[in-house]
């Protein structure tokens, strides 16, 4: 956690940079010489949270490794919108193979580097929630279990966005997707399904697991930095709103992400060797309604007759998170 005491007021360390802040306290993103690992011209939608999250994470990793970095990418939006043949937006060594095997490809790259004696070059694997929590899950678990020297980053936009918003095991309850329509007695995705991959990663007792959000850049960069100081299997799960799939306004991407955190629905925490070591306190606690209302995938819960029961069930999930992860502890 970036536990920086606030030395001055106005914006403290909440903004990306600030002319009054000491250089060392500004983010990598505030630096005019940041890598821009994911360059302009990519075809991501307006206001794409995933494009933003990827640049945030990889620029931080590039700085942390002094630009000695290779990334393996699973199939998904991030891969498709960045590399339509023969163009690429990547300004780092980058490799794509298949939808489900990014973790294994990264393991292979790390093994090759080891054989070549180039252990200063670090390896990242990255993919969407579908590629991570569903189809790539076996490869990922294997990478964890073997403690391969890879940082795996999951960009969680809570569905298979690239193929038209199908449900994944990271889709939240009640959310409407192409495969969980807002119809019937229980519209949207069912309660009691899905899985929490950060907690499963912790169950592998790997050296480092963290959740992060595009809404908290200082925290996200601190976690990437920390991950790059550690060898072995590491996992960071970043919440990245998708304006298209969630039906939110492109300019609301960060607001939506912020409300996910501040409502408790997406708790920010980190863990070492299977134990939670820190969690981020809520700054301005918000009801889940504020979060849900900005997204058309939840619009069936509102309107003329709001579905109070379902909203209450979602609020209960948030409340449980707040309790479990100590998001309100002093």
């Amino acid at each position: 956690m970036p536990l920086q005491p606030i030395k001055f007021y106005q914006t403290g360390t909440f903004t990306v940079g600030n002319r009054l802040l000491d250089e060392s306290q500004r983010t990598v993103q505030a630096n005019m010489r940041r890598t821009n690992s994911l360059n302009s011209g990519h075809r991501a939608c307006q206001g794409c949270g995933e494009a933003l999250g990827a640049r945030y994470a990889l620029d931080a990793a590039m700085q942390a490794t002094k630009n000695r970095l290779i990334a393996a990418n699973a199939t998904g939006c991030l891969e498709v919108f960045s590399t339509p043949y023969p163009e690429t937006s990547w300004q780092i060594p980058w490799m794509h193979s298949l939808f489900g095997n990014a973790a294994s490809v990264a393991t292979g790259i790390a093994a090759a580097l080891k054989v070549k004696g180039k252990q200063d070059v670090r390896v990242i694997a990255q993919g969407g929630d579908g590629g991570t929590t569903d189809i790539g899950f076996a490869c990922l678990s294997g990478m964890f279990e073997r403690n391969d020297d890879v940082l795996y980053i999951c960009y969680d936009n809570e569905a298979y966005m690239n193929t038209g918003v199908q449900r994944s095991s990271a889709t939240p309850p009640a959310a409407r997707t192409a495969t969980t329509p807002a119809a019937g007695a229980h519209p949207g995705n069912s309660f009691g399904t899905g899985k929490n991959v950060p907690l499963i990663a912790m169950a592998h007792r790997i050296p480092f697991v963290a959740t992060a959000s595009v809404a908290n850049l200082h925290d996200l960069e601190a976690k990437v930095n920390k991950a790059m100081t550690i060898h072995g299997a590491r996992y960071i799960h970043i919440h990245v709103p998708c304006p298209l799939g969630w039906g939110s306004h492109p300019s609301d991407t960060l607001k939506v992400a912020r409300l996910a955190v501040e409502s408790g629905l997406f708790p920010l925490f980190e863990a070492e060797h299977g134990e939670i070591t820190a969690s981020l306190r809520l700054r301005k606690k918000a009801p889940v309604e504020a979060y849900l209302k900005l997204q058309r995938r939840f619009s069936h819960l509102f309107g003329e007759k709001p579905d109070r029961d379902t909203i209450a069930m979602i609020q209960a999930i948030a409340d449980r998170n707040i309790e479990k992860f100590g998001l309100e502890s002093p």
Partner: peptide
Amino acid sequence: CDNCFGVCPDN
């Protein structure tokens, strides 16, 4: 504050 510079998904 560098926010605009930071938050643009398209650099």
